[in-house]
Amino acid sequence: MTAGPAAAILLAPMALSELRSLLGDAAATADALLAEVRADRSRLPVVFPGLPRRLGREPVRGGRRTLGGALVDLDAFRRCDVAAAWLLGALGAAGDEVTGLYAHGDIDERAMALRSLHFLPVGQATVALFGEVQRTNVVLHLEAAVCDGDLFVRTLGQPGFDQPTANRLLLKLAFLDLPLARVFGAERTANGELSRMLRDLATEREAAGRSVWRDTNRLLGRAPCPGAIARLIGGLEHGDDGVRLAAAEGLLALGRNDLAPFAKERLNREPRADVQALLQRFAGG
């Protein structure tokens, strides 16, 4: 893993205050831990692993919320994750401190370090740890880093995280069957090369008699590659409700009026109301 530069991760005072308020009655404990580390910076790697025990593992709750410029689903974040972000932000931790906590953490500590990234300014530590998540293939860590927030799209374009690199991370999402909707805004990054990669993965999976990532059709519709239209039309006939829904969404995104007859033909046989609604919109257009 490449450690980030020693530049401090600075959070705006307003964001720090919001994070602290999410800690509820654990805020005083967090203050004490911050003071301990401020007095002796070498205590950070000692304090960090104990955050779940001391601050709690319960979800902070609050649903989708914009916080310090980040869109997150607070239901997916635990109090210790927020405390980790608050602590690192308040300390102005350097990128290599964050990557170091990840490198020497156990599986849960690593997830905590990754979730804290959502609340911290995007930087080289984010890119380095996205690289680790891509390499290591741990579902919990992929979820922690890219799901339940818009960190993925905010990181896109940073040095070291270009579109091809981002495509590989989304392909990993498909490989591990995590829903695209949990990566906020990721559908906007659809591109032809990603569609080709997803199409090829789908073909391999089908040849092996295995299931295909449902969101494949959503992305194929937004950025079609050769073979995409056949998959979308075929998807309307799939026995899995989720695949049909994604195919209908994909066709709507594709916006090809000449394909509307396929939607009309399917409409009368479609049992699901949400799929019907999409087909109606497409056929009507």
Binding site: P45, V46, V47, F48, P49, G50, H104, D106, D108, E109
Partner: peptide, 9 residues
């Protein structure tokens, strides 16, 4: 040792 002695497992 201190950093390891704080780990949950």
């Amino acid at each position: 040792l201190p950093r390891y002695l704080e780990k949950d497992g």
